[in-house]
Every structure is written in C-alpha cells, then in structure tokens.
Design a protein around this nucleic acid. Structure first.
Lengths: 335, 335
DNA sequence: CTGTTAGCGCGTTCAT
DNA sequence: ATGAACGCGCTAACAG
C-alpha cells in the first residue's frame, strides 16, 4: 500500500489541498508566513496522505543530507565498535544518520573510500590510525568538514583523542612500582598513531627510570598475535608484559595459561582499552580504560559544531585512567 | 581546493570538452553509442577536472541510492556487530553503502526508524527480534524490499536465520548425555523470536526426556543479568545452566567463581552465539556457534538478489554447531 | 552518433 | 499571504 517507491509527493498534497506546492513546502518547513487556517488544512491533508518530503530531493536542493560518514579500519575491533556505537546514538539524537564504511585495513584504498562516502554525506569522521600524515592532511582538506579520531591532524581538522601516552605511562609506573624492571612491550601494527604515542612514552620511561629495561616484541592487534608471541615473551625473560591492547593481552594470557605459566605470579600482563571483556578474563585484566563510546560522542559533538555551528570546535583529549585488576602483581624477582 | 561543496559538475566537463552534457553522461555511464575518439577526449577532460557524478543527483533521477539500511537493536551487542560486519563488507564489495540505524532497543520507535531510513536507501535489512509479528508484517509490506534476520516473516520478506532451536536441542542433548537431569534455563528478554525458538526446544526436550527437569530463570541479554541471577541458579539446585547467550553465561561464570563454585565440577554452564571471547573465558565456554558474520553476508546476498535480481531469493537457515569446551562436564549427581 | 528537452521532487526567489 | 517559475545535478526520451 504505502510502498516507498510509489510515495505521495508534494504535488499530491498541493492538489488535494487546493493550494500551490510552494505553500505546502512552506507549511512543512514551518515557514510562519502562511495563514494559520490554511496551514492547518495543509497539515491535515499531509497527515491524511501520509506525506513527508523526499529526503533525496531535499538533499539535492538544500545541499545537505543530514547524514555523516564514519570511516573505520575494522568493524570487528571492539574499540571501533564502541566508538561507532557512541557516535551513532549521539548523531541519531540530533536527527542525523550514519553511513558506515569499513576500510578493512586497506590503507591504500582509504582515500578513495573517504572521498566517495563524503559525497553522499555532510561530513566524515575518520578513524585511520595508519594513514601517512601527509596523505591525511591533503585528504582532510578535500573532504572538510571532517573530524579525526585518535591521531593528531595539525589543524587540518578538529581532533578527538584519548591520551594513549599518559595512560601507557601510568601502566609503566604501576608495574615499576610493583618491582618490575624488565618489561616486554607487545607492539601493534607498525605505523599507527597511538602506537607511536605508546612507544614515545616507553622511551621517556626508560629515561626516567635508568633501571628499567624494555624489550619490544612485534605482535599485532588481535587474539592470535598475543598468543603467537608468548614464547618470545617468555624467552625475553621479562617479568611483565605490556600488550598493545586487550585482545593481544587476552591471547597472551591464554597462551601463558596453556604453558602452565601463572599470571601474575610468574609474569604480570597489562592490556589497553578496557573492552567489556577485560573484566572477565582470567585473571581479570589490568588495563587502561579508554572511554571509547565517549570518544564517539565527542566526535559527533565536534562534527555537529562543524555542521551547524559557526566556529571550529576545540580538539579534545580524554585522559584514560588505568584500572588495576588481577593480572598484575609484584615482580617475582623482587621477592 | 577540491572542496566537496564546490565540486565540478557535469556541465563543466561538457563545456571544457566542447560537447553537450548528455554526451558526457553517456561516456561516464559507459554508453557505447558514442564515438570512441570523442569518448576518450571526454574521459580525459573528466579525469583532468577530477569529475565524477554527484551521487545525490544521480539517486534522485535513477530512483536508487546504492545504499541500504541496516536496523539493529543494539550496536553494543557482539552478535549484531558481527552481522553488521559481515553485511557491510559484502555490500561494499558490490559497490553498495550501508546506513546504520541503532534502534536502541526502543521497540516502539522501530517502525518510524525503519521507514525513515528506508526513504534514503534502496532497501532495509531488519534485525528486530522483539517487534510484534503483526507490526512486522505490515511494516515489511510498506518498506519492501526488505530482508529479515533471525526471525520468521511469513513470506512478507526473505529471511536469513540461524536455527536457534536445533542448536539449543544439541546443547540439551550434550548436557543430558553428561548426566545432567535438572537444568536451569536463563531466558533472555521476553518477546524475542529466538527466545521463543529456544523455549519451544526446551519443551520438546522435556517431552523426549521425561527424566529432565528444567527451571526457567528470567535473566536478560548482558553480563549483568547473568551475574544477577547466579544465586537463583544455585538455589534452584540445577546441575547445569543454559544461558540465553554468551554474555549472560560469562556474567554467570564470573559470579559463580566469586562464590567459590567450580565450573564444571559443581555446575556446568553453556552459552550461545560463540562470540570471539567465548574461547577465552575461564573455563572456556561450551556454546552454540552461530555464524553471525555469515548471517550478515547471507542477508546482503538476499538483499542484492532483491535489488538486482529478478526473483525473490530463498530464505536461508544456517544450522549452528555446538562447540564443546570446558565449561560443561559430568553431572556431580551422576558420579 | 550527438544535442535539445523534459523531468526526478523539492526549496526558494520574485512577482502579485 | 500566495502562486509561478527557476534551479539543485543528473539521466533518458526524443529529435535530428
């Protein structure tokens, strides 16, 4: 019946109401320069016919779609899921729709993807941790308005980030305070912005604590990579392992358990992000609590300001706190 | 420079190429009735100017947007995340975009949400486990083409589902085979389609196995609900608990551990869905492996058939297999 | 084979 | 306060 393909148009309303289509348009858009009685009649007809303006035609003439694009590298990653979740709900509350684009970690095709989605939307929120900085800068200029999540954008766009460096520093202080002097750092994928922040923090920590030794082990960002490097971690002789994120930590935890190595008695393990499952590992994971959903909401707030506001919003930086659970304990060597 | 708001239009290309705009249109759309040399010249100009057709204008005239809407109840739920993930990538491979709408479990507003998103897209994939069946039927008629996930739709739309009933039956057989005779079923939210399937299976199992007793405990769909009913599960005296999904099982596992109750020695626990974390709980969770990403891919395949194909696609039913891990073991009473 | 014309459905001047 | 006419950018039917 009310098939969306054969929907009632503004002219139908105009005809059955006996007015011109511009009057209907005015009424539907709340233009006050319409006789109240007439307006009421038009509204009645519109309601009866179940009319509402075609968003596509509206978008074309108004130049805005009430939709934004969100580009993320991997929809299977809990952190990006949380960002998307927070963003999506916040945007919906303001009457905006969300077009989602999963770049599938294809850094090379990210630019085209962003440009393509941008053309069907009013702006784009970009999570592209591994895109080279120069490419990012030129891309941002061409797709403005844009908001960048979790990486610097040197004024090319407002930024919404969590401070991965400071949280990493707290994690290091935490295990250092527990007597650990030899740490293993399970790095993520090369080239990521938050990875660089962690790395810088680690270097700074070594400078601050001359007694600290850090062995970097190249891992990845998923369960498997954490499990895969377990033997390397053991061989390194570190008493604490700092994983790139919670997934890597969980993989490591699992592999250590399989080898009969006790956590935290034999080795301490930390994660990063505090995904919902981090509290349910064995032992529960000590990690940095990154407020990802809030990051999403903030990203929307910035985008909204760009879209509807006059001024460019401030970039925001959320400071994650660390959540100490049971995967970290005193160093076995200090006892 | 190449700002998306001041983009090059088809008329620009036509002018600088010295041809009419319809020729440009033909070339861009691969219409073969154009002189090859002319076509080449137009392509060159288009490339030089960085032209590509405005998708909005195209959508308006063609009546299709190359975009579909996906409506899900909760973007924070791993199962829906997996469906969205599979669907999104599959659609992208076919050049389609995905508009995502999180209904935030607001069953009442689902209808308007679906209708609204449908108008900006070519079709909608609907995950609405709790919408009343009559509402669903009329809604589907009004928003066709539509594909429904994980619930029957009585020919109002093609359906893509996992067989929650058969998987639940296997789970019951599994624990029954382990000697369990008194089970606790932690039901999810009332009114869900897959919940009804589980419930029906349980009734059937009781008929098949007269020695089987099942206590239904009203829980929910998240961690907290599993933890919340732990005492109820214990008080019921069941030797095995079948949780509505993995999240509920994980919450239960956690609460049982806190009470010093051993799994599976004192009580066996099963989940449902086999989310990525189910393999990392303590003990690893016995569960029904629902291929959610595949469900998403199938949903796209059905939608694509609806959009581009001539015939209405068959509804599909995936049969989940159960994955036995370590959260289930022999009944303590049978030893 | 190419150009001219007419819409797609709507918002918005510009007259009245 | 209202209606007629124009244009958003593009595709398609119609001439030539």
């Amino acid at each position: 019946m009310t098939n969306p393909t054969s929907r009632v148009r503004i002219t139908d309303v105009a005809q059955t109401a006996g007015v011109s289509l511009s009057t209907v348009s005015r009424v539907m858009n709340g233009n006050p320069t319409v006789d109240p009685d007439l307006a009421e009649r038009v509204r009645a007809v519109a309601a009866e016919l179940g009319y509402s303006a075609n968003p596509l035609a509206r978008s074309l003439v108004l130049g805005r779609t009430q939709t934004i694009a969100v580009v993320i590298p991997d929809l299977a990653n809990p952190t990006f899921q949380a960002i998307l979740h927070g963003l999506s709900r916040a945007a919906a509350e303001d009457g905006y729709h969300v077009l989602i684009a999963d770049s599938a970690e294809q850094v090379g095709e990210e630019i085209d993807l962003v440009s393509a989605t941008r053309r069907r939307t009013d702006g784009v929120v970009l999570c592209a941790p591994r895109m080279p900085a120069e490419q990012l800068a030129t891309l941002l200029a061409s797709v403005a308005p844009a908001v960048v999540v979790n990486r610097p954008a040197q004024d090319a766009a407002p930024t919404v980030s969590a401070d991965y460096g400071s949280a990493m520093a707290e994690l290091v202080e935490h295990v250092h305070g527990l007597g650990h002097r030899h740490l293993a750092y399970l790095s993520g994928v090369p080239g990521s912005a938050s990875g660089a922040a962690r790395r810088a923090t680690l270097d700074a920590a070594c400078a601050t604590h001359p007694d600290l030794q850090i062995t970097e082990i190249s891992a990845g960002v998923g369960f498997d990579s954490g499990a895969r490097v377990a033997d390397e971690v053991i061989a390194a002789g570190a008493t604490a392992a700092l994983a790139f994120n919670d997934l890597v930590a969980m993989g490591l935890l699992s592999a250590l358990a399989a080898r009969g190595i006790r956590v935290p008695d034999d080795i301490s393990v930390t994660g990063f992000d505090d995904i919902p499952f981090a509290a349910y590992t064995t032992p529960p994971l000590t990690t940095a609590t990154v407020p990802s959903a809030q990051l999403g909401r903030d990203a929307w707030a910035a985008m909204r300001a760009l879209l509807e506001g006059a001024s460019v919003p401030e970039s925001t930086l959320l400071i994650p706190e660390i959540t100490v659970r049971e995967s970290t304990g005193p160093s076995p060597k200090s006892r």
